[in-house]
């Protein structure tokens, strides 16, 4: 093995600092959330306790954290499933280079780069003028999709750019119908990437703030609830909440990554099961 150049160690140190920069703050509030009952928002630690976590499970003076969590979780699942289904369909569509696909593609890119507050404001205005009530499951749901779908679509582009068309041709030559080809050949091959799309769909929705702000209505999602707390909660209870929801996010991410990993292992052992459909 070639010897490492000196620049390697400099860059490795830089990378280490970058990782510290990324994770340091969140670790700090993780530690601070174990403040003693009299502790404040900064160090020093005033004893160590789980007081603030227990406090979270008690009746809060403001808001409804657990209701917000349930709503965010439900909305995340809704957005996740919708994002996967719509992205796959659109990914398949874009391979056909249908007329007008360019416009649709630019609309999707616009959806990604448009300042989020415009979606919030515009959707809010439309619902308002139509006399409809904004609600997290209707206007909030649609507004979040404008954020998750472009990511799903870009992942599908990346997937299909690397897709070997000969698998499909082989299936067709053997007499598979268009639907059978998709169901038994294409979908199994792209399955791991779909887990990636699902991960984006769920986590981006679960943490979405700006596009949900004016579109969630009177029942807050968790990020809105947390933001509300920042203005009137001055105890480490907010750190405890931050720690819990971050641990929850890490758990979700780990579950998705594990699923991809297991799928890869299985595939390496058995070979692709694409085309083995009954």
């Amino acid at each position: 093995m070639e010897r490492r150049p000196r620049s390697f160690y400099v860059l490795a140190a830089f990378f280490g600092l970058f990782v510290l920069f990324l994770y340091g703050p969140i670790l700090t509030i993780g530690i601070l959330s174990f403040q003693g009952p009299g502790g404040g928002l900064t160090f020093p630690m005033n004893g160590v306790s789980t007081y603030w976590f227990r406090d979270l499970f008690q009746e809060q003076a403001v808001g409804d954290i657990w209701g917000a969590f349930r709503r965010s979780f439900g909305l995340g699942l809704m957005v996740m499933i919708t994002t996967v289904v719509i992205s796959v369909m659109a990914g398949l569509a874009f391979r056909k280079k249908f007329r007008g696909s360019g416009i649709l593609f630019y609309a999707a890119i616009t959806s990604l780069v448009i300042p989020s507050i415009l979606i919030s404001l515009g959707v809010g205005l439309i619902f308002n003028q139509l006399g409809l009530k904004v609600h997290w499951a209707t206007s909030g749901f649609g507004a979040q999709l404008t954020w998750t779908l472009p990511f799903g679509l870009l992942i599908m582009f990346a997937v299909f750019n690397r897709f070997d068309k000969s698998y499909e041709e082989a299936a067709r030559d053997q007499g598979a119908t268009a639907w059978q080809t998709i169901r038994h050949v294409v979908l199994p091959i792209i399955a791991p990437s779909l887990i990636g799309v699902a991960l984006f769909g769920f986590t981006l929705s679960y943490d979405e703030f700006a596009r949900t702000l004016l579109t969630a209505g009177s029942y807050n999602t968790l990020p809105l609830e947390i933001f509300g707390m920042t203005t009137n909660v001055t105890t480490p209870v907010i750190y405890a909440l931050g720690t819990l929801t971050t641990i929850f996010s890490f758990g979700i991410i780990a579950a998705f990554l594990l699923a991809v990993w297991i799928m890869g292992k299985r595939r390496a052992r058995l070979g692709s099961d694409a085309g083995r459909g009954v």
Partner: peptide, 22 residues
């Protein structure tokens, strides 16, 4: 072209309703 639009329809509808219309 028709099949392409059919498959892309859900995306198009969402973008129309929650991006273009706003």
């Amino acid at each position: 072209h028709l099949l392409g639009w059919l498959e892309a329809a859900p995306l198009a509808v969402i973008l129309l309703g929650f991006l273009i219309a706003p």
